[in-house]
Every structure is written in structure tokens, then in C-alpha cells.
């Protein structure tokens, strides 16, 4: 029964998952797990146990297979997080260009400890290099790139979000 709303997966997402499956050989279902999790997270900001169950049922695979993927990849949030995710790269090229200060500045500005969330923001110390090292220091806000950061730039970015 691969159509319409499925438990707590909205029908548009079901359709998208079915389209995604066309990229793979007939009968392969697992290759859609990562994609399905991304879609859910985009909608809900984090992934609940019930989503994992529904994805497994929808694809006709074991829950553990979905859970394992959700737990392995660092982009998936399994606990409630704020509306906007800010990931500051603190890997080596960014560190050489002051990423630790950027992170402290954001902690202060948002009154938020690294790794924690308010309703509005989730502040992440990104240990993986985000492939923008020549624009260090940098961060992503909801996976959009912001490079060559300064305190003024950060003020502006946060102001824009606040004014949304």
C-alpha cells in the first residue's frame, strides 16, 4: 500500500519517496531510507520513533534498519531541536581563523550553550569540516552557507532570522 498518507507520513512525502525509489533496481527499498528521513526532518525538525516505524512499514523493511541509519548519520536529530539549526565549523582551517571565538560569540548572543536548543535555535559545534575552508570561519544555518564570518555578519544573519 504505497500511496496516500501513511500513519504519520504526509502523502506528499510518500509520493516523493516512491519517486526516489525509481533511481534504484526493482525491489530495492532500503536506498530510500536516508531520503525519507531527510524529508521527515525537513517537515518536523527532528525524527520521532513513530516516524521510524512508519518509514519501515511504508518501505516494508525492518524498523531496526531504519533506526540504524537514523542513529549513524550525524545530520539526523532524534531529539527535539529548535527551528533553526546553526552549525559552526570548528575543524582545523576554521579554527586557525577564529572559529572558537565565533562559537563563543554565538553562545553569548543567543544565550545558548553549544549543543543545546531553544525553541528558535539549535547551536551546533560542527566537528566535520563543511567543505568551505577557504571561506573560514564559516557556519551553516539550516544548511545554507555563510562564510568569512565576522561578529557584524553574525548580527546581521540573526537579525534577518528574527525579522522573518
Amino acid at each position: 500500500m504505497n500511496d496516500n498518507t501513511f500513519y504519520n507520513i504526509p502523502s506528499e512525502i510518500c509520493t516523493k519517496i516512491n519517486e526516489w525509489l525509481l533511481k534504484f533496481p526493482d525491489g530495492k527499498k532500503k536506498p530510500a531510507i536516508i531520503f525519507a528521513l531527510h524529508q521527515i526532518q525537513k517537515e518536523n525538525k527532528f525524527i520521532k520513533k513513530t516516524h521510524i516505524n512508519s518509514i519501515a512499514k511504508f518501505l516494508g523493511i525492518n524498523e531496526i534498519d531504519v533506526y540504524e541509519v537514523a542513529a549513524f548519520y550525524s545530520m539526523f536529530e532524534l531529539d527535539k531541536v529548535g527551528k533553526h539549526t546553526i552549525s559552526v565549523c570548528t575543524n582545523v582551517s576554521c579554527m586557525l581563523n577564529g572559529s572558537d571565538e565565533i562559537l563563543s560569540y554565538l553562545e553569548e548572543k543567543l544565550d545558548l550553550k553549544v549543543g543545546t536548543s531553544s525553541d528558535k535555535f539549535f547551536l551546533k559545534d560542527e566537528r566535520e569540516c563543511l567543505a568551505a575552508c577557504c571561506g573560514a570561519p564559516m557556519m551553516q544555518v539550516n544548511h545554507k552557507y555563510y562564510e568569512n564570518l565576522t561578529k557584524e555578519k553574525i548580527d546581521e544573519i540573526i537579525r534577518d532570522i528574527d525579522n522573518e
Partner: peptide, 21 residues
């Protein structure tokens, strides 16, 4: 992908495409 340095290793990438960790 979904965030994992190791997936840059070519056989880990194949696993990831197949929908596994």
C-alpha cells in the same frame, strides 16, 4: 548523504547508497 566523514571511503559509500550505515 546525511553527515558521515567515513562515507567518503568508497566502499562505505556503496553501503550508504544501499541504504545502510
Amino acid at each position: 548523504g546525511a553527515g558521515a566523514y567515513i562515507v567518503g571511503e568508497e566502499t562505505a559509500m556503496l553501503e550508504s547508497i544501499e541504504g545502510k550505515k
